[in-house]
Structures are given as structure tokens and as C-alpha cells.
């Protein structure tokens, strides 16, 4: 089945491994992802922090192009893109707001925008837990995982439509379908410190440290993330967090698509595991994975 896809800018940079594993897992499940042609940056946090209309204009250009191609549903892996695109679509329902945004665009935006959802929801809707379980070649039963959604995916609930804003369960369901032992992780929707790692490092270091400390205390083998920024704060910035907390962390931080891909028997290379700062080798050893399939994404029949 075909899906229209908005990768987001970090897919071409810091979260290339999220991108790679998302495409591999979706392909294994029979989901074909086609990018919105000529998509642009959603503006991320800086645009909405600076001006709501600027942020909405950047998002609307993408939504408009998708709408003109008759797209009804759009998937994106990044919670920040998801949040911005959904906020923009919602605000554009207000005619005064729409008029102000249209002034910034080359052409007035299409009257109806596609519905934007996360890749995580897309996978769940496409396959369901049973469909996913049917693709598992090597169960993750030896792994204890801490699911971590970050603060954007489920909030604000009026905009995001992701279940309970402080206790979403979708990732738990997907990981459990892969056989993992999934922790009830209390900080799963706490903030990691977002993009303040650069201008206000101590804030991000302390907030990320809290999450890493709890995952360590709960004896997680890995934290499983869904957001490129969260993953970078918890993985690449892990030493900064450790320093702030006066602790030592050795906590791999995988994307949920990487964890699912391992269960599907996709090779570490197809999942971009080599990009992780904190190596996932310990996990691979625990899993005693069967040899990874060669070539294109395999892992059972697609869910159609």
C-alpha cells in the first residue's frame, strides 16, 4: 500500500538512521513511502517560537502541495514536524488566520489539507499488533526496553490525537508485539530539554539525565525513542547528561523502528545501528540474532 511521506530535515542529517530504519521496516510491512515532492522545512521549534503565522506558512506550503496531488493522509516520523503540521492545519481553519498566512505564500493554500499522522500510528493502522507479530523472526524477549515518546507526540491532546497525553501506549504495543519486555516507564512523555542543548545546555543536560538515570535504575537494556531531537539529546549528548548528573551512563538509545527492524531480522546495517553513539552491540549479543537477510527489506509477507 502506498503512503505519502514527509521525512523532515533531520532525516537527511542527524537522524539518517531513523530514516533508514523507518523505510526498511515500512518496506518489510508492505508500506511504500513516497515523499511529498519538493517538501520544505516545517520551521521546527524556532519558527513557531518566533511567529505563529511564519510557522504556519512553512507548514502550509507542504500541506498545500500534498493536497493538490489529492493526498488525504500524510505520514511523518518526526513528532516536531507532526506537531507543527497539525497545529498549522488546525489554525488554518480560522479564516482570519488563513488570510494572514495566504499573504505569505506564493498562492493561497488549498481549502482542505491532508490528515497528518505519525509513522508509528501509520504502522499500527496498517498492520495491527497481530500483523506485526507475524513478521517477527527473532523475538526481542531477552530485551527490557524503556519506551520514550518525548513531550510532543501526545500533547496537546486536542491537536495531536495520540491517546492519553501522559500515558500513550502505542509504542508499548508495537514493542510487545515484537516480543520485548516493555517497562512501564514513568518519564515516557517527560521533556528531554528539546533544542536547548546549544543555547542552554544545563537545562537539556539535566532533563536528559533524569530520563537516562531512571532507565538505568529500571535496568533497561535500551531506551526506545520516536523523536530525532530526543534521540540526539539522549544518545549523542549522553556524556553531557552524565556530567550534569555526576553519573555514568551506558544506555543505548534506539529508534522504535530500529528495535522493530531487529525483531524482523533486518540487518544492523539496514537499520543504521552504526550511527548510534552508545553502541547497540550489547543488545545484538543478547539477542543472538540469526544472520541478517541480504539485499532489500525482507521479513515476511507484507500486510495488505
Amino acid at each position: 500500500m502506498n503512503y505519502t511521506y514527509y521525512p523532515g530535515c533531520s532525516a537527511g542529517g542527524s537522524s539518517a538512521d531513523y530514516e533508514k530504519s523507518t523505510r526498511a521496516v515500512c518496506a518489510a510491512l508492505g508500506m511504500t513511502l513516497a515523499d511529498i515532492p519538493d517538501w520544505n522545512c516545517c520551521g521546527s521549534t524556532p519558527a513557531h517560537a518566533v511567529d505563529t503565522e511564519l510557522s504556519a506558512a512553512l507548514c502550509s506550503r507542504n500541506l498545500d502541495m500534498a493536497a493538490r496531488q489529492g493526498v488525504r493522509k500524510l505520514l511523518t516520523p518526526c513528532p516536531s514536524c507532526l506537531s507543527n503540521l497539525r497545529h498549522a492545519a488546525k489554525r488554518m481553519e480560522n479564516p482570519q488566520f488563513r488570510a494572514r498566512v495566504d499573504e505569505l505564500l506564493d498562492n493561497p493554500a488549498a481549502p482542505e489539507f491532508p490528515d497528518v499522522t505519525s509513522v508509528m500510528q501509520g504502522i499500527a493502522a496498517h498492520c495491527g499488533a497481530n500483523g506485526i507479530a507475524a513478521h517477527v523472526r527473532g523475538s526481542l524477549s531477552r530485551l527490557t526496553l524503556a519506551p520514550y515518546y518525548g513531550c510532543l507526540m501526545s500533547r496537546p491532546p486536542e491537536v495531536m490525537d495520540f491517546g492519553d497525553p501522559e500515558n500513550p501506549l502505542l509504542m508499548e504495543n508495537l514493542l510487545a508485539a515484537c516480543g520485548a519486555n516493555v517497562l512501564n516507564f514513568p518519564l515516557k512523555t517527560a521533556c528531554c530539554g528539546a533544542s536547548y542543548g546549544i543555547p542552554e545546555r544545563r537545562m537539556t543536560a539535566r532533563l536528559s539525565a533524569r530520563i537516562l538515570q531512571l532507565a538505568t535504575d529500571m535496568k533497561a537494556d535500551a531506551v526506545v525513542a520516536a523523536c530525532p531531537l530526543c534521540q540526539m539529546n539522549l544518545d549523542l549528548r549522553q556524556p553531557q547528561a552524565a556530567k550534569a548528573a555526576g553519573a555514568r551512563f551506558v544506555m543505548p538509545v534506539l529508534y522504535f523502528t530500529q528495535a522493530m527492524g531487529l525483531a524482523f531480522g533486518l540487518s544492523p546495517d539496514m537499520l543504521g545501528l552504526e550511527k548510534l553513539r552508545v553502541s547497540a552491540d550489547a543488545l545484538l549479543r543478547k539477542l543472538e540474532l540469526p544472520p541478517a537477510p541480504q539485499g532489500s527489506a525482507e521479513g515476511g509477507k507484507p500486510c495488505e
Partner: peptide, 25 residues
């Protein structure tokens, strides 16, 4: 290789369209 050394642009005049959004803003 966490970060791309070269920027990604948007094909088919897309980068220009974004620049115009900022200009009008």
C-alpha cells in the same frame, strides 16, 4: 557522520518559494 556537510536544497524552485515566504514575512 551525524551531520550533513552540505545543505539540502528543495528542487523545482522550492528553495526560492521558501525564501519568498520569509521575504513577505
Amino acid at each position: 557522520r551525524k551531520f550533513g556537510f552540505r545543505p539540502h536544497t528543495v528542487a523545482n524552485g522550492g528553495s526560492g518559494a521558501v525564501t519568498r515566504i520569509f521575504k513577505r514575512y
